[in-house]
Amino acid sequence: MALRTLASKKTLSFALGGAARSLAASARWVTTVTLPDLSYDFGALEPAISGEIMRLHHQKHHATYVANYNKALEQLDAAVAKGDASAVVQLQGAIKFNGGGHVNHSIFWKNLKPISEGGGEPPHGKLGWAIDEDFGSFEALVKKINAEGAALQGSGWVWLALDKEAKRLSVETTANQDPLVTKGASLVPLLGIDVWEHAYYLQYKNVRPDYLNNIWKVMNWKYAGEVYENVLA
């Protein structure tokens, strides 16, 4: 799912081959990304995550990543058209940060679900078995993610990853808005938890471990299980 999203968001100029490039140069346009809607209300995850946090997180933070990523894509397109290699390279930081912010948050919203709709129900099926096999138990996995998320210095993400080649689960962390794929091309995100302070500060202040403990109450394991089965199908 996430990989498909990534693929569809690639700019046209990247996807086009040599023959088509002159066409792109004469009539350039860039496939921009848009802020995805949430499938639940901002307040629907309370008390685990407050409505105010969700509103700011979606409407301000994610919206800014989308806007800045689109801006960078347009600049990239212009730089590519001009053959300005140093400008292309210079834009990589903004693309990684803002594009990563968009990718990560798009996954994050799907990882969450109101309790009334099944949020927090532990994983069943194949993913449930795989967790037992790779981590010992579901509780051991939660403990490991909480520990690694709490220990992460500064801003970043903690992930439950599936290595689609080794067919193994692992817990990974990434700094800032680096998406999981920066940790390995075969890694697919099943769950990502945002441990930037903006994700919890208004409600949990400096106590990141409490945020991590509570987020499991609204975790959408059904989504993670679907991604897992689709990737391995």
Binding site: L56, S155, E197, H198, Y201, L202, K205
Partner: peptide, 12 residues
């Protein structure tokens, strides 16, 4: 520039 330094007062 950590968010904890300004988030309560300035948000994003």
């Amino acid at each position: 520039l950590w968010e904890h330094a300004y988030y309560l007062d300035y948000k994003d």
